[in-house]
Simulated scan of single mutants.
Amino acid sequence: MVALRIAQVVPYCSAAFGGGYEYELSRALVKLGHEVTIFTSDRTPYRYRLSVDEEEAHHKVRIRRFRALLDLRELPVPPSMLPGLLDEDLDVIQTSEPFQLCSLYAALASRSRGVPLVVSQHLYYKPWDPLKRLGLRLSEALYGRFVLSTAKRIIAISTAARSYLKEKGVEEGKIEVIPIGVDADRFTPTAEPYGPLMEEAEGRKVILFVGRLTGYKGVKYLLQAFSRLLKEYREVVLCIRGDGPERPYLLQLESKLDLRERILWLGYVANRDMPSLYTSSNLFVLPSLIEPFGISALEAMASGRPVVATRVGGLADLVEEGVNGYLVPPCSIEGLEEAMLRILEDEGLERRLGREGRRRAERYFSWDVVARRILSLYGELL
């Protein structure tokens, strides 16, 4: 395939914070010999602005930022993005989520310039936040259907997202399931252990959770399952990396369950230290009630760690029951306890599940594999 000029259109992109789906995909596409420009706003999800005066380049990925006049509940409005897109010579435009205003600009540029549009769909549920639910309904009514009708193909990152699109009336032949990828060269079973965690664990086995401390992550069920687990298996600690609005409640629950000496609250751990954190654990648990994909679970798989997760969203695609981990129903304290205990009590099983998780991550989910699948999809449109 000849080198393509590709636009990735996204509301936010900060390479300093890991960049997200579009940035990592762009890096993989550049490695395969293509030119990629990310069109984004000057905002971040953390509510501060980035410079729009100069173009950025990270790992040969060009980034153009446009000033957002408003940021409506994580929906930045950068009106100068549309002229910016129209100024570029492009072969393909890709954007994420049809309800984003940036996706409207991508669709308008696609129609104006005759450039094929690809939309990636991550959401498969209605947002919990009432204002976000209202915003989603309004955006779908005002321009979401226009974006979907303009798109030549729609990438669903999970089978759950595909089902969501079909319920919205999108024809099945227009949808292709292509997952989010993982940097399998960075997240490996051979990464050096994370020193601070190893010191705190004091030789005990480690159960790891990585994620935001909010209700839909289901951490309260993990704490209750861990409390039950300790009655059967004592030489283990629970490590929680992350912060969020539910932290005060979880600390109260920790005290109520008498787990103060058993839980390590790491809070923020730098992105550069995450591979080491995963390899310092014996198993990874993600007890979410909803989960668009489950990137942390995929990173744990690539790091050679067994995964216990709930059967929701993208997690049902990542974990193959009894092969690289176990799936349990959401909110199931008993299910979480039984799955964790099964792995902790059998070191041979722990190693086998970890090996298979690594193999599965390399074979199906590495960014190189994902980028090649997306390039093949682009090729069908040109």
Rank of each mutant, 00 (worst) to 15 (best):
K220G: 04
S149Y: 00
K132Y: 04
A191T: 05
T190Y: 12
I175N: 07
P130I: 00
A270I: 09
D53F: 04
T37M: 00
A316S: 11
Q100E: 08
D317C: 14
P196A: 15
E380K: 01
P76S: 04
G218E: 10
M1F: 07
P292N: 03
Y268D: 12
I154P: 14
P76Q: 03
R351C: 06
Q224M: 05
A302Q: 05
L229N: 02
I333Q: 15
L264M: 15
L142A: 12
I263R: 01
S41Q: 05
V319L: 03
L238C: 07
P330D: 11
L142V: 07
A225K: 04
S41I: 08
M301L: 13
V118D: 07
L208Y: 14
R62M: 08
L134Q: 08
V308N: 05
L318P: 01
L381E: 14
D258V: 02
Y364P: 13
Y105K: 14
I178E: 07
D368I: 00
I290T: 12
E380H: 00
I295A: 12
S41P: 12
Q121N: 10
P127E: 07
I295S: 09
L223S: 06
E347Q: 11
L353G: 07
A161H: 01
L286W: 07
A184C: 04
L315E: 05
G195R: 10
P287Q: 10
E356L: 09
I63V: 14
G379I: 00
